[in-house]
Design a protein around this nucleic acid. Structure first.
Lengths: 201, 201
DNA sequence: GTCTATATTTCGATAGAC
DNA sequence: GTCTATCGAAATATAGAC
C-alpha cells in the first residue's frame, strides 16, 4: 500500500471522526447549552468552521440532526436493555435500572440532552418522523401503567428511575467531578433501598 | 348598589378570573402540550377566542408569559419552603422535600411545565430577564455542592429529589388518576427510605 | 381592550456554481 | 463536499383605528 492511499483507517486530521459525527458532537453541545429550538443551523455551522448550507449535505433537516442524536441514545440503550424481560415486575425493573445506570454513566451528555429538550424530542415523535422510535421511556410507561402491579410498587419503580436521573443530572453535572466508579455504587445502593421497600419484594 | 355596577366582585362570565390569568391558563396547557418554542402566540390567541395583538395588551412579550408562569411556580414554593433552613444537612433536606411534595401534588401541571421546558426556562434566566429568579433548583444545587457533606449523603439527597419528580411525572401524569392522598404518603415513604440510608442519619 | 393591518427579523431550506 | 446567494414561511412585535 502506497502512502497516498485512500484507506479509511488512520486519516490524518480533524475528519478522522467523520464530518457527520463532528456535526453531531457540536450539535449535542449546543442543544444542551442553548436548547434545540434556540440553536440555529447558522450557529452550528459557525462553530464547525463551514457554512450552513454544507450541513444539508450531511443531514436532510434540522430535525434530522436531533433524530440522529436520538439514535445515539437509543443505540446505547438497546445494547444494555435489549435482553431484559419487560414483564411488569419489580425484579425486571431492577434489572432494567441496573443496565440503565451503566449507560447513563457512560453517556451522561446524551441523557442531559434528552432531559433538557423533552418537548423537542416528543415533537419529533409526533411529527411523523417515523422509524423505530421505541423511545425507552415508552416501554417504562407501559410497565408502570400495568394495574396488576400494586400502586405502591409502581410508585417505587417510578421513584427509583427518577432517583437515578436526579442523582446524575439534578440541574446539570453537579457530581460531574465524581468519578463514575464512585457514583455507580451509590446510585445502585439508593435504587436497592427503594425497591427493597416495594411490597412485592 | 345598582345592577349595572362596576364592582370587581362576582363578574358574571368567563372573565371572572381575569383575562391575564386566563391567558396564563391556556398558555400553560399549550406549553406543556407542544412545548414553549413550538407554541405560537397565534395559537394561544386562537384558543382564547381573540386576536394575537390583544395578548400584547396583557403581556409585553412571549417570554413575559413564560416568566409569569415561572412566578406562579416560584410563589407556590416560596410559601412552603421559605421558612426552611437552607443549611446543607440531610435533616433540612428532608424538611425541604416534605414541603415540596405538598406543593408538587397541589400544582402538578406547573412542575410538568418546568420539567418539559427546562431549556426555555434557563434561557429566560440567561437572557437577562432579571427580577428575582431565585430558581429553587439553584438553592438545591448550592446545598448539594457543599463538599463538607459526604458524597454519599449528597447523592442520596439528589436521588430523593429525583425520586419525587419521577414518582409524580415520569413521562407525564402516569399516576394522574391516583388521588393525591394516596400518592403523597407513598412518596414520603420512598423519600424516607432514601434519606434513612444516608450516612449521617 | 380588542381589532386589522403591517413591519421586522430570523430561520430553515433550496439552487446552482465550483 | 463546500460555497454564495436567495427564497419562502412563520413568528414576534408594533401602529393605529375603534
Amino acid at each position: 500500500m502506497g502512502a497516498g492511499d485512500t484507506m479509511v483507517v488512520a486519516k490524518p486530521a480533524a475528519s478522522a471522526k467523520g464530518t457527520r459525527e463532528r456535526i453531531l458532537d457540536i450539535a449535542l453541545d449546543l442543544f444542551i447549552e442553548k436548547g434545540f429550538d434556540k440553536t440555529s443551523l447558522r450557529e452550528i455551522a459557525e462553530r464547525l468552521g463551514f457554512s450552513k448550507a454544507a450541513l444539508y449535505y450531511h443531514f436532510a433537516s434540522k430535525d434530522d440532526i436531533l433524530l440522529a442524536l436520538h439514535y445515539r441514545l437509543h443505540d446505547s440503550l438497546k445494547g444494555a436493555l435489549g435482553s431484559v424481560h419487560r414483564d411488569p415486575s419489580v425484579a425486571s425493573w431492577a434489572a432494567l435500572l441496573d443496565g440503565l445506570i451503566d449507560q447513563m454513566l457512560a453517556n451522561r451528555r446524551l441523557f442531559v440532552l434528552h432531559e433538557r429538550n423533552r418537548a423537542a424530542f416528543e415533537h419529533l415523535h409526533a411529527e411523523g418522523h417515523e422509524a423505530e422510535h421505541e423511545d425507552f421511556e415508552e416501554d417504562f410507561r407501559q410497565m408502570l401503567a400495568d394495574e396488576s402491579v400494586p400502586l405502591r410498587d409502581r410508585v417505587r419503580m417510578a421513584c427509583s428511575f427518577g432517583a437515578v436521573m436526579g442523582g446524575l443530572f439534578l440541574g446539570g453535572d453537579l457530581f460531574g467531578r465524581a468519578p463514575s466508579d464512585a457514583l455507580g455504587p451509590l446510585l445502585r445502593d439508593a435504587v436497592g433501598d427503594l425497591l427493597k421497600g416495594a411490597s412485592g419484594a
